[in-house]
Amino acid sequence: MNKVLSAFVFNLLVWLAVTWTFDPVSLAIGAVLAAAIAFALRNVELEEVPLLLMPHRLLWALLYIPVLFLYVVRANLDVAWRVLHPALPIRPGIVKARTTLKSPGARVLLANSITLTPGTLSVDVVDDTFYVHRIHVPEDDPDGDMERSMGRFESYLRRIFE
């Protein structure tokens, strides 16, 4: 019941943000929709959401956003350079890397972070093994290099989720 209620409040806040009005008719429609969605999702387990409400984890999560954004911009410039280069200097391949993260939520975010950072694209995650497509595979120790790249994100994600 508690979960349905918090989902209802969250949905209503999103509705308010999207419509940006306190018009009673709009509010009534929003309340009905928010209730229906909260009821439909009553059996979906979101066990990691309460974790994010702890202040120090939230702080790390907020810090993670600009850090990730910087990596995304830097890596995007790298891909832009490769695409615009007349000779197309790419060396693609799929490498295999292991993560030390345990919690599923942290692994999801790690996979998404890898994919958002261009040059790397998560293809599959099996237990602690990530299969990552890279646009430029380094000459020596391709798997180890990927694990080091993932390490940058892991230290943040561990503080957020574990």
């Binding site: 995007n76 693609p92 799929i94 994919t115 261009p118």
Partner: peptide, 17 residues
């Protein structure tokens, strides 16, 4: 870019940013 994987790299992420 040559194949589906490389195209996904550029097509989804430069476009995301």
């Amino acid at each position: 870019l040559p194949d589906v994987y490389n195209r996904l790299q550029a097509g989804t992420k430069c476009v995301t940013l």
